[in-house]
Computed example of a mutant assay.
Amino acid sequence: MNNPTRTTNRLHFEDFPWQRFEELVFEIVYRKYKWGELSPIGQKGKDGGVDIWGVDTEETTWYIQCKNHQSFTKADAQAAIDKIVGNYEIAKSCMLLIALACNITTDTLQFIKSYSEERGFNGSDVWVGTKLETMLYSDYKDLLYKFFGIETEHNRNIKKVVNGNKVRQEVEKILLQKVNWTPEIRMEIARDPSKQFRFEKVVIRSVDDVDDSYGENASYCEICPYQLTDVGIEFLDLYWDNYRIAIDIDTKCWRRIKDDDNLQENEFDIRAEHVALLPYYCIISIMEKGDDYSDYPVLICGFEFNNTPFLRYYYKHKASKVDLVEGKPLSISDLSMLIDEIEKEYVDDISNT
């Protein structure tokens, strides 16, 4: 069986009025090269066959013609080039660029290159419809949304970052305590970040259950906020904590074990919390005063990950702040931090006895 492939829809440049097509080409040209001067003179009316004129930073003059046609022949190319040459003085350093909404034959392409040189241009380039599509999908994804309303993964990621930043500000305003950040308080919160929250719990509800928020088929949970990260809010498991984790000091691999399990050779054990990470961009609304069923704040979220709002789950050793991710060995630095914290705990225990 062949592997499935992802395809992209053909862009319909022919649906654009000529002005819009020129605007698109101008945006691409402006980004693709470095300019000392660049002007969309075709928008102003009589252009002498040139829609965009510019001088790049290497002092090469560019004459750019935009043709939003369904076909473009040798005769069309000759007429376009003759019109430019008839209205402008073409120096040896000048470049010609023709941007087309359609595709053309190899013969027409070769004709444009040879005829433009014959008429005095130092060189030429031709952007056919397929090349424009490739440039947009590969290098200028934001223009796909601006000109065609096509939202790519790149565009969605931009929205996630922008929306996530806004939500984080709202989260900090509603959920965090307003404190006087003395050195003592900073140290206390560094040891236990959950103390910076105003509430020991929050309720998470699905945006898809707004009409039946706590019904039999509704998705919701009570959960304890632990700390804010750059990506989202870390929550601790409300009903289970202090999982026992065995770590192999040689391989740096780890496994979750039961309290009465024996350690293997080269293993030591730690206690860790189970953590769920809720990305900011999944939070749609925050009901600070709760709802009809809960006095805790309610976070209305998009359940985007296997019917949950949580991007990932992992274990956290709170004292060292080391995260243990399923299937991922510890780094040397993480292992060192864990061992340092265990040694500190041991020394503290000895001191207190």
Rank of each mutant, 00 (worst) to 15 (best):
L143I: 04
S138Q: 13
F147V: 05
M135W: 05
I204M: 07
N122S: 13
L144T: 02
G120Q: 09
D107W: 06
G149N: 01
L100F: 02
V210T: 14
F197S: 00
D76G: 06
V207R: 09
N103G: 03
L175N: 04
I204E: 00
A99T: 00
K160R: 15
T73V: 03
R168D: 08
I158P: 07
M187F: 06
Q177H: 08
N180E: 11
V203G: 06
G129A: 07
W181A: 12
T152C: 07
V202F: 04
C94F: 00
D142P: 02
A101M: 04
M187L: 09
S116P: 02
R119T: 11
L132A: 09
C94E: 03
E153L: 13
L176Y: 03
R186C: 08
E188A: 13
A77W: 00
S116C: 04
D211W: 11
L109D: 10
N165D: 12
I90L: 00
M135H: 10
E117P: 04
A99E: 08
E184Q: 10
K201R: 12
V203Q: 01
A77R: 00
K141W: 02
R205L: 13
K166Q: 15
V161I: 15
V167H: 07
G86N: 13
S206W: 07
Q110T: 11
Y115W: 10
I150C: 03
Y137E: 02
K83R: 14
M135D: 14
G149L: 01
G123I: 03
E89M: 07
N122G: 15
E170W: 07
T182W: 08
S116Q: 05
I185N: 04
P183Y: 03
G123K: 09
K195L: 13
L132Q: 00
F197L: 05
R205D: 02
A80S: 15
S116A: 15
P193M: 05
C102D: 03
M187Y: 08
N180V: 11
V207I: 15
L100Y: 06
Y214D: 12
V161Y: 09
P183D: 10
W127K: 04
D76A: 01
E172R: 11
V85F: 05
T182C: 03
D211N: 15
G129R: 08
T134V: 08
K178T: 14
I84E: 02
T182Y: 03
F121A: 03
K83P: 05
E118K: 14
V179L: 15
E184F: 09
R198G: 09
D125K: 14
